[in-house]
Design a protein around this nucleic acid. Structure first.
Lengths: 214, 214, 214, 214
DNA sequence: AATGAATGAGTCTTCATTCAT
DNA sequence: TATGAATGAAGACTCATTCAT
């Protein structure tokens, strides 16, 4: 599983190998239980080299969080067409989100679980990303409300709470979908759109939200 | 902050003090970063006594999880009137949930974050409790659908996903509410009821779900 | 296996129970690995009582050694008829020795192994007993030599070495006989008498030493 | 006494230093009472290095036993000329044995006392070596009996017991000779040869076994 | 660019021993 | 006579981190 032992690679490449290994180990074991020894071994290098490039366990973990957070945000962003309707944008975003977290479960573990359980510093790193997403969703809700000619506007705190709940539900479903691997990203996204967009009362009246054709 | 140094207490009392201290430390630092030394000191006893009564770090953590899980479930249960309508039961349950997690944030940290990040054994302990709650919510949704004469029934997997999303959203909001402590349990519960029950589309049409009078 | 929990016994009785338990645990686990907890539990009393009566782990171990050493010496002594010939006395002594060590293997383990492996103080305790036995054997050899009109006497150091070798062989055979429990005390004693009395060269000539009828 | 603090040695060398130190401490204190701290200090290295190379206290002890057992067997073997008569082979072997155990008393303590007092696993390690020696002696006796035209053969169990007694006596004499250090290997070996080969009855008739000229 | 050799500091855990009743 | 409650001290083991090459 570890990178094939190849000698003398350029620094940039080696660094990525180390980060790959680190994400795997941190995701699997958690920050504290992960050992630099294991990471170095999986990366196929000696420990001093890890320290030379990444400086410390803390810094290494931070680097992991940053890289994985950016990758997730990039994945979600590139899944959204900017000129679509609000609900379509939400759908596309969710689809991309569940696809990415499903494809990189250890990366998701690092972001969702590990980074938030080991001190403010790391949590803050993820919070930045999360806030970006919450802001995006918030704005989506506001736009959708305007499109629906809702008047007066939903109060700001209300909207913030809704966005928070939506993102929280999404995160939770990601874990759920990963756990039972028979749930596809589409199913997860559909469940959430129904829940969030239509609402339970609508569902009970038979008014589901319908996903666009694949 | 540590318990006043009182000598010679009966075992049952000392054990609770130890669990109190352990929940606080585990919640603050995480399982691995918590040290038995710190826990013993906060409990106001020597380390050997902690081992004599609670056996090992693992067992101590498990004991914490069990006690806190039971306390949470009991709190939610005692908040619900069994003869109420489905949405009222949900509301009451959420209220109790947010009140309890708000009042015991470190306990909530142990259950929601720490226990799920340090090995299957601990996670399983929480999963048991969580599944109890998910099952309760699932049943609530089914009953509500029947009351609303929905026909045909929502497919089972669909309902499971909805319950999961609802619980996930609640868990996420609990953290959110704890973080910015100007959010009351009522507000958190209201936000979630709106989100879950009415759904975003209804909200946009101005059809909010209305909480019962306090 | 532990003594039945009976309350309020006279001190002398309790002490013997404790020594019984201690010999068993020390014999099984060794001095260092034996824990006062386990001994107290097996004795069916609380730890403070053990300390009240026997004072410390060291003292307890010493008490064990003394009691068991005396028991062994007494057993060997009472097996010997003082008016017998030298070889008969040796035979009877060996028989009693192998019978006793076979019947009390943990006691033998304490004397032969544990006491000699944990510091001069304990070893000295056994050495006293051992020297008593070696002296007895030495004298037996001298007497036998006189009876055989050997002249001049065997040099003293020579005799001491022979006695040492004989006792060492006996000790070794005791362990050997205990290990494979199909070896009877008679067989062990006969083997040793042949070896020691007749000598290998005689054995090779077909001149065995013959045990008296049972 | 500890090795002079020399830095940066190749692993193989350091390992031997560690084993040297470990044999000394284990031999002096016993397995349980020996502390890794003390061993590391005597070896002139830090504790983590001991663990890095030897893995655990158990493994370290096992490594000691193996090394010392092999050294002892090698010493005895190289002392024996294969084309000699049986009694000469026995004499040469004993001489080498007493010389080696006399020169390395702590090594002998590890093999003879400590290894046999701390669990089957360690004991088995020594038993392997011991059986090799017992087998060698057994065969020597058989050969000697044949040479002496003894007929019929000594029964197998009988021979096993004799070999056991001989080895046991040797082991015991080794301890005795170590204790009073005025006894030379030659004297110990002579005593044992007299005892074993000639037998007490012969000795009493004045027929000693005579060692070859040095 | 890369590593074999090495360690200070700290963690979990256990044990002999005592106090207060 | 007897014990439930409690601890100081120590030991095995691990880990992040650095030095010298």
């Amino acid at each position: 599983m570890g990178a094939v032992k190849t000698k003398r690679m350029p620094r940039a490449v080696r660094e990525q190998q180390m980060l790959d290994a680190a994400v795997e180990i941190f995701g699997r074991r958690g920050y504290m239980a992960a050992s630099m020894d294991e990471i170095a071994e999986l990366a196929g290098v000696s420990k001093p080299l890890v320290y030379l490039y990444l400086n410390s366990k803390d810094d290494l973990f931070t680097a992991c969080i940053r890289r994985e957070a950016q990758a997730l945000v990039a994945a979600v962003r590139s899944g959204i067409g900017p000129d679509q309707s609000a609900d379509r944008q939400l759908w596309d975003g969710l689809l991309a989100f569940f696809a990415h977290t499903g494809a990189h479960p250890l990366s998701w573990s690092v972001l969702h679980l590990q980074a938030r359980t080991h001190g403010e510093t790391f949590a803050a790193e993820v919070t930045a990303m999360r806030e970006e997403i919450v802001a995006f969703v918030t704005q989506l809700i506001v736009v959708a409300a305007r499109e629906a000619h809702r008047d007066p506007d939903l109060p700001e705190r209300e909207v913030a709470g809704l966005a928070e709940a939506l993102v929280g539900a999404a995160e939770s479903l990601a874990a759920w979908a990963n756990a039972s691997d028979s749930v596809t990203p589409r199913q997860a996204a559909a469940t959430l759109m129904n829940f969030a967009w239509a609402g339970l009362s609508d569902l009970m009246r038979g008014n589901a939200w319908n996903p666009p054709a694949a």
